[in-house]
């Protein structure tokens, strides 16, 4: 349903994303990992319309969405969350989520009701009426997902929704993400928390210096020499191999 082909973006002389391609099927959770600065968030920005690509195409259900503004891409069924959470601070949790629901629901009361339902799916029901700025980080991460989910997307881009959460909070969030995918939504998730990647993703894409350097299951990725070197430095794979031997 989501096809990204040959996306590139340079900032000055820096190739932030170089010839990146990926394919996502309905209900699939694709992991996107890589060291800091690899271009993961930039790739999300390119797909979701916040950054205009230099080259390449993004297709959603066969239709090109490259170069459309973010609001138009969202309206076509692709929603994203932000790595640095962006709540509407002075609005309540319910009102925050209702903004997403308003994409397809012009009536206020119905949007607020839909927000309540989505909040239930993310375990935010008891915090519906408090201002978003009073949420904990874990709460804000859930709110990011809830708001995006309220737009009824077919593709969801999750940018480090597990980062900064403690292990029990992560364990709580994992089944919620799984449930979203099981409802037919295709998910691409940028994640450093390997507990989440291993649990949720059948396929993983590794980005380094803006290029995709490896694809495969989490187990294959973990033993891929290029991936090990991307994280631990040149020659690390060989040294680790000697230690193991």
């Amino acid at each position: 349903m989501l096809e990204v082909a040959g996306l590139s973006k340079s900032f000055g002389g820096l190739h932030a994303v170089r010839d990146a391609s990926l394919v996502l099927a309905p209900g699939e959770i694709l992991g996107l990992i890589g060291p800091n600065g690899a271009g993961k968030t930039t790739l999300f920005g390119l797909i979701s319309g916040f950054i205009a690509p230099d080259a390449g195409t993004v297709r959603l259900d066969g239709a090109a969405i490259t170069g459309l503004p973010p609001e138009a891409i969202c309206a076509r069924g692709l929603a994203r969350t932000f790595q640095i959470v962006q709540p509407f601070g002075r609005l309540s949790v319910r009102e925050n989520i209702a903004i997403g629901a308003h994409l397809h629901e012009p009536r206020r009361a119905a949007a607020l009701a839909a927000a309540g339902t989505v909040a239930g799916r993310l375990g935010l029901t008891d915090r519906l009426d408090q201002p978003a700025r009073t949420l904990t980080l874990a709460g804000r991460k859930r709110l990011e997902v809830a708001r995006a989910l309220a737009t009824s997307p077919r593709v969801l881009l999750l940018d480090e929704v597990m980062a900064g959460l403690n292990p029990s909070e992560i364990a709580d969030l994992l089944p919620l993400v799984r449930a979203i995918a099981d409802s037919g939504v295709g998910i691409v998730m940028i994640e450093h928390v390997m507990q989440a990647v291993v649990n949720l993703c059948a396929r993983v894409c590794v980005l380094n210096h803006g290029s995709v350097i490896a694809r495969g299951s989490p187990a294959e990725i973990a033993t891929d020499a290029r991936v090990v070197e991307a994280y631990l430095g040149h020659g690390a794979a060989a040294r680790l191999g000697r230690h193991a031997a």
């Binding site: 609001e71 309206a75 929603a79 932000f82 708001r147 995006a148 309220a150």
Partner: peptide
């Protein structure tokens, strides 16, 4: 109100 609070987030939600 959403635009006032955070324009990028509002845009990401279809505003």
């Amino acid at each position: 109100l959403a635009l006032r609070e955070n324009e990028a987030a509002a845009q990401a939600l279809g505003v």
